[in-house]
Design a protein around this nucleic acid. Structure first.
Lengths: 226, 226
DNA sequence: TCCCGTCTCAAACGTTTGTTCGGGACAGAC
DNA sequence: GTCTGTCCCGAACAAACGTTTGAGACGGGA
């Protein structure tokens, strides 16, 4: 019973506490390496051996520190989505403060689009995290999809804010348009940008994040105000 | 050398010819069963044994008729995307004829959205095919992604038509907005609808395809005309 | 010094995977 | 009848997979 700290760790650290100081260097190395490989190559195309080999740790480290491969995947998923939702909520809160509790559509969309888009900047550390989150939406474990299906608490405030900003629209209509706007984000994958690049004969460039953000907000705002 | 018809078949039937009469019943059974299982459970989560067991054929049938599991996947992908592109091109052509070669944005978007959306109707046979195609975009083989990245010939006519309908817009802008509109389609997955359903407390219903189509076109048209 | 909890290690386990093999059934041509 | 090509079958193969095991290294507290 001495060689199973994964379950004890789960019970102890209820909150998402990283504590880089105290945490074992091996566990952190597995975490970041796994996130990168999963994001780049897909969940099923990366084996535990690939992770541990690239991280320079022992094969058994994954099961020792995380319990299983799926549990490792789920922990990365939980931490990154929590960070993203926190940042989005922070921006929405600021927008609400700036507008006496009634932010306009444009600022609500900015709070929704800007965090993942800014993180997608090639210079940004979290570029990989965004790709991981997007991938989880289609390739995720059943546990992940269960969360994605049922846990919509982070979207409630955005839906309510949009309903408040569009009082003339039926609530049903607002939900659908939020659904469409979210789809625009999930389409921000490597392959989709490559297709766009090929279609436009190199006219479109991915690098300019601020311009892309403005384009997305313009498009979605017009859709909401239609 | 007698037991390898897969390669000879590839050379012989250059075009996508099904010929249900002449084609072996086993091959057709493998094809439709594989498509359904792949679409429902994901490419990597379905084994050759799952397919052959459910289809009621021998395990070796996949390799005998298609060469390999990946080749089977690719053949399904090629046939279904070809059918989808053909239907879209047909609708765009009709819209062009109706408008003296200059169809408006709304009809172009209808040609883009309507085929996959109408096929997604629960009553429609091709519901599975649409899910397969959507899945190929994120879980596909490297061969599929290569096609998705480079082969954009089917989108050329849509991009040109949109540029013609929006002469005041910069070409670059049109390409980006087409990219956004396509993202709205790819978001039409089971899990995404479930999330929308949970978020709206059951206010939104998936079943009504015509209403959804109108909503999507309204949203995207406003984005293009912004 | 001894003990104990934490962590790492090489090695192996059992399962599942895609693929291949040889044989045989069946039908049409000669 | 004999041959030939097509197709199906059970059986096996080698590889890769996630996971488990038992032992050992290390360090702080008694």
């Amino acid at each position: 019973m001495t060689n199973t700290p994964a379950q004890a760790d789960e019970a102890g650290a209820d909150e998402l506490s990283l504590d880089p100081e105290r945490e074992a260097a091996t566990k952190a190395a597995v975490f970041v390496t796994a996130e990168r490989l999963f994001a780049l190559n897909g969940f099923q195309n990366v084996s535990v051996r690939d992770i541990t080999a690239e991280a320079g740790v022992n094969l058994a480290s994954v099961n020792y520190h995380f319990g299983s491969k799926d549990a490792l995947l789920f922990e990365i998923f939980r931490r990154r989505t929590a960070e993203l939702n926190r940042e989005r909520a922070r921006m929405l809160h600021q927008a609400s403060d700036r507008n006496d509790g009634k932010p306009p559509v444009r600022e609500i969309l900015a709070a929704l689009f800007e965090p993942p888009l800014r993180w997608s900047n090639p210079a940004h550390d979290r570029r990989i995290s965004v790709q991981f989150i997007i991938r989880a939406r289609s390739e995720g474990t059943e546990a992940m999809k269960e969360v994605l299906r049922t846990d919509v608490s982070h979207l409630r405030r955005f839906a309510d804010a949009l309903i408040g900003a569009l009082p003339h629209l039926a609530r049903e209509e607002v939900y659908w348009r939020l659904h469409f706007a979210l789809g625009m984000i999930h389409n921000n994958r490597f392959a989709e940008f490559d297709r766009l690049h090929a279609l436009s004969d190199g006219l479109t460039r991915e690098s300019d994040v601020d311009t892309l953000l403005k384009r997305m907000i313009d498009f979605a705002e017009a859709g909401f105000l239609a």
